[in-house]
Design a protein around this nucleic acid. Structure first.
Lengths: 204, 204
DNA sequence: ATAAAAATCGACGTCGTGTAGAGTTTGAGG
DNA sequence: CCTCAAACTCTACACGACGTCGATTTTTAT
């Protein structure tokens, strides 16, 4: 995505364009916090970044490419943090940690996450990114369920299938909660955690 | 939504326009089964309905109004069927019946349901329709949970909040499943049912 | 049969997108 | 310091989709 001229990434000094590129993505993220992505015009983004429409098309081939790059940036951040989290073997701790991480991510990047979900069907690249993320999450949930004693397997009442459904539950619940007040995210998180625990057979 | 000329609904003979209006909605639904709503053009719909763009604007003020009307039609069908379902007091039966009904609805109108969800944020009218539907569903789930012994209340681990999360889980799971093969819906339904039962404390 | 209401059409103005080509700035090497 | 190519920026244009308008034809009621 970095301009049409490859091999610019590893330069000693930071090119002016790198700054612009970041400014474009930052502006886009800021705008997404205000209006829906289809209410945003390329002119808006360019203006916010301090350049003209024409100049923006030097960096990105289209509006979709801009938001795709933004989603990619955010999702990579998410993956990083996932890897950085210490793996605990104890199910209850693992669940609590995962939910806490999720709250933080949605607090920081709610609008981008929502946009990613909205566009994951219409923009294949974003769909790819997001479904991969969902897979990672689902695998993590599956592992916890199995460790807690749920039978492994893909049948409707076994770990894999249940993890999928729980993943969607969390996604959707946070999606809605992140549109409202900040404390809603905490409550939503608690509810999801409770259902997750119950599904794992770990009734408090 | 019936044209710009109100009070046409209750007429002895069916106006030509009523047929056209239905044709437009039917065409729109058919198209939604093929492409995403933003890949559909007003010209496409008009052509499918056998009229020109100009004529379509006699019936609906905009493309959004068309799809809003379509969603309204579908959602009303959904409400009707909900009311028609006999209320059982036995939680297990109630859950099974609700899920069965949901499978049928998504089988028949999957593309419209997905579109409604996609647009419920950007189109306020659709948002209204869908959130009302979700509320009905959530209330029903809440009732079942309480009858099964879950403590009533809105705290994160009480019936209302759990019902909300379960509602989103079902919505999202069906949303994804309905894009794939028909049998996926059945499996998805079984998984949701299992989690619902578990959350209600009704472990098989 | 006729006049009002309903329905249809083609042409037009607007807005947002993406492209093209011309011009300006930057910085590495002579 | 000069030069030249790459990096960057801009204005102008072409296109497609939307929604509007006024003229015209078809239906319907009486």
């Amino acid at each position: 995505m970095p301009g049409h001229h490859p091999a610019r990434s590893r330069r000693p000094t930071e090119r002016k364009g790198d700054v612009r590129e970041r400014a474009i993505l930052d502006t886009c993220e800021a705008l997404l916090a205000q209006k829906g992505h289809d209410a945003i015009t390329v002119g808006d983004i360019a203006e916010g970044a301090g350049i003209t429409r024409g100049a923006l098309y030097f960096y990105f081939g289209s509006k979709q490419e801009v938001v795709t790059a933004l989603v990619a940036r955010t999702v990579e951040h998410l993956w990083e943090r996932s890897r950085a989290t210490a793996k605990t073997d104890e199910p209850r701790q693992a669940i609590a940690a995962a939910m806490q991480r999720t709250v933080e991510l949605w607090n920081e990047h709610g609008p981008v996450m929502r946009t990613a979900i909205d566009l994951s069907l219409t923009v294949p690249e974003i769909g790819e990114l997001w479904s991969h993320t969902a897979d990672l999450f689902t695998e993590a949930i599956t592992a916890v369920l199995e460790r807690a004693g749920v039978q492994a397997g893909t049948e409707p009442d076994q770990a894999s299938a249940m993890a999928r459904a729980l993943c969607w539950m969390i996604e959707r619940t946070f999606y809605h909660a992140s549109q409202e007040a900040r404390e809603k995210l905490q409550k939503a998180s608690s509810t999801c955690e409770h259902i997750w625990l119950t599904s794992a057979g770990l009734t408090a």
